[in-house]
Amino acid sequence: MILRLNICREKRTSASFDPYRNLAIEKYLTYHVNEEECTLFLWQNRRCVVIGKNQNAWKECNISKLTEDGGFLVRRLSGGGAVYHDTGNLNYSFCTRKTDYDTGKQTEVITRAVRRLGIPAQISGRNDILAEGRKFSGTAYYNSGDFCCHHGTIMVNVNRDEMSRYLNVDKEKLKGKGVASVRSRVVNLTEFNRDITVPLLEQSLIEAFADVYGITPGKTLDSAFFSEDALSEINNDAAWLSGNEWLYERPIPFTHRLEGRTASGGVELLLHVNRGKIVDCQCFTDAMDPCVSAVIVSLLKGTEYNKDAVARAVSRLPGMISDNSIVEHIRELLEG
């Protein structure tokens, strides 16, 4: 039974919008929660796309566009699909032990908080919260042994144009394993009540948290209250969560098919990717000498799967062939 409620909320300095640090704080709060305790963490990320633990990053997110615009790709610890975050979005996390974990009660905190602000919230299935049939909140979960985390997003005033800019990827080109996202019709809370702001919603969540559990939460904590050990664990995890190994090198194999026409004929490339590397490659073309396609294959095999590495690899080709357009073309295909 829950006897103590904690609230954690960072002061909204620029560091508090770092998505990797936020996930690391959440992980710390989850794995250090005491028995009979529930911690509510309220956090916001700067522009980023957050994918599920077992998703293919390239399939879910237009990574080039996102990073060119100064956004970040983030892989969370829980399951499910890709979501876009900006500062118009508020995230919540409930961290408890397994015996005290109650998704029904936790979800009630969210619905109660938004209903109080005039939102006709309804729960849909196990994971979504809707208003008039459109989703404003998605949830996901992770648990290990005795420790559980239930977290979610609440769209207050998210830039929906940007959202579709980064999440729309031509998925036909990428085939492989990994968990696929499900498209939803989404809505911002401000479309129902123009006066809703993130601070107002946070206040309402804190009140609903106390009401649902019938307990007055302790003092609101932020990382200034954390011990040195805690901060060092958080820093290490933030580094790991923002590293290539976690973001790009998970064993979720897929094939990227690139196809197009150059002045001299058609080209089709199949890049077989695993752990962020091109492990195998096939090149079909009528535009050049078959020997050249064998060279392309040998240059690309073992290359990192990103457009810079691929461009570097194919740039070693021109000396070998008379038709430079193929090199340009492969670059262009990857840009798209």
């Binding site: 633990k53 077992n54 399951g79 994971n127 979960y141 648990n143 290990s144 042994g145 394993k177 968990v179």
Partner: peptide, 29 residues
């Protein structure tokens, strides 16, 4: 919908997670 497995040659330790599975948005060790 998904299973993350270790690799051949990895060590597993009593009481520690060696894999995780994903179901309806939940990842469980």
């Amino acid at each position: 919908v998904f299973a993350n497995l270790p690799e051949e040659g990895d060590e597993v330790t009593l009481g520690e997670a060696f894999a995780d599975v994903e179901s309806v948005k939940a990842v469980s060790d």
